[in-house]
Design a protein around this nucleic acid. Sequence first.
DNA 1: TATGAGGTAAAAGTACTACAAATAGACGGT
DNA 2: ACCGTCTATTTGTAGTACTTTTACCTCATA
Lengths: 236, 236
Amino acid sequence: MVKPIATRNLHGQVIHELGRLIVSGEIKPGQSLPREELLAERMSMSRTALREAMKVLSAKGLIESRQKTGTRVRETIHWNQLDADVLAWRCESMPTEDFVEKLVEMREIIEPAAAAAAARRRTAEQLVAVEAAYEAMAAARNLDEWTAADLAFHEAVLHATNNELMISLFSVIETALGTYFALSASTASNFKYSLPHHQKVYEAIRRRQPEMARQAMQKMVADSRSNIRRHRKAKA
Amino acid sequence: MVKPIATRNLHGQVIHELGRLIVSGEIKPGQSLPREELLAERMSMSRTALREAMKVLSAKGLIESRQKTGTRVRETIHWNQLDADVLAWRCESMPTEDFVEKLVEMREIIEPAAAAAAARRRTAEQLVAVEAAYEAMAAARNLDEWTAADLAFHEAVLHATNNELMISLFSVIETALGTYFALSASTASNFKYSLPHHQKVYEAIRRRQPEMARQAMQKMVADSRSNIRRHRKAKA
DNA sequence: TATGAGGTAAAAGTACTACAAATAGACGGT
DNA sequence: ACCGTCTATTTGTAGTACTTTTACCTCATA
């Protein structure tokens, strides 16, 4: 689930490093990178490996290379913002407040719709997966177990939509939940408070009640949104 | 807007070629590619260029390379289905009926929500962009002009949400509209029939009426969905 | 027979070099 | 002042050599 990012490869490290620099804004759009030969030398690596890393970044829409001109960082409009790596890099360097808002907004749009679709089309096996995740949440004895089960729950719901485009949005939910747990770590005491919400969603999906599922999920996300707000105020 | 796909680079071509083969299912998940040296020779290119192409595909989650084992196609779950290229490759080899359904479902979820958000948060400039696109649709004198303006309209709405995660979903809308026009080409005569829908959306965004915008957009998408259905039946 | 240590080879990963292709920008001619 | 041409710079491609990882085979041992 959560990838180790061990990335022991050389270009893996470089992808990560450059990606983070760009996404965090330390290298701004329009700005151009040193030419390959020089950059490779500066990072003490071969041009070959560097180029492979750059290809990956360009695949994610972060950079663009042209002969003679060199390589420049593209406008944020062109970034694959939904790419798991891009999202992760964005969160690494302290997610800004408004980014968290945007993540929550996405959840509010995606998840209720997904829950409804799941209630409509889920197979028996997919229901089992949702149930299993719910049970794991109920049984969780610490925050780690809870977060793992929580993620599994939301992923199972997305899978139950039987729409792979939907499933690909899991990267967003994953990131959103990740930052949520990071922000509301204070609630480590009663981390299970949202269990009833999850139960309602699960029940609605089981009973094939799309509208019920939508509303339950909507409440859950709205609740977690207000929770973040509360936490932020408490800290301010 | 629509990228030329000229992709004169060698590895650009290879990315496209391999990507299409994988996404279309001609090379199935789990299956492994010939080893780099051999594949490079078979495609009459250098290993260097081939590897750069493969890095891009692995960045999109399509393949995975490990030493000794070789390179294998990953399960579809891991594909970045929302990536513009992946979507395009998928449509190139005859989009299946259920894929079109999934695209429409995504539109039904995303666009009404986007319209509502745009009505809430659009700036003056963003409104101008939406208006300009609408005017262009009204002024369109042939199908090409219409499709271009239509795309611009939907893109402008997404931009007006001021949420870049939302904006990244434009690739999905673009693909959906593309296949829509491809399918309902028969309506080339009265291609402007959906103009009133667009007007309502535009008006609601102008007047900052989120719920109105949501409903108008919802109707628009629902209408185009039923239009596809009708067309399919007519053909069958 | 099972099991585990160790060796081997095969494939990807990295490095270096050389050259090709494109093109921004300078140069020069009209 | 304009327009073609030339040049230098930077990415793109190729080829080769070597390194690292690791699946799998071998064989000794329990």
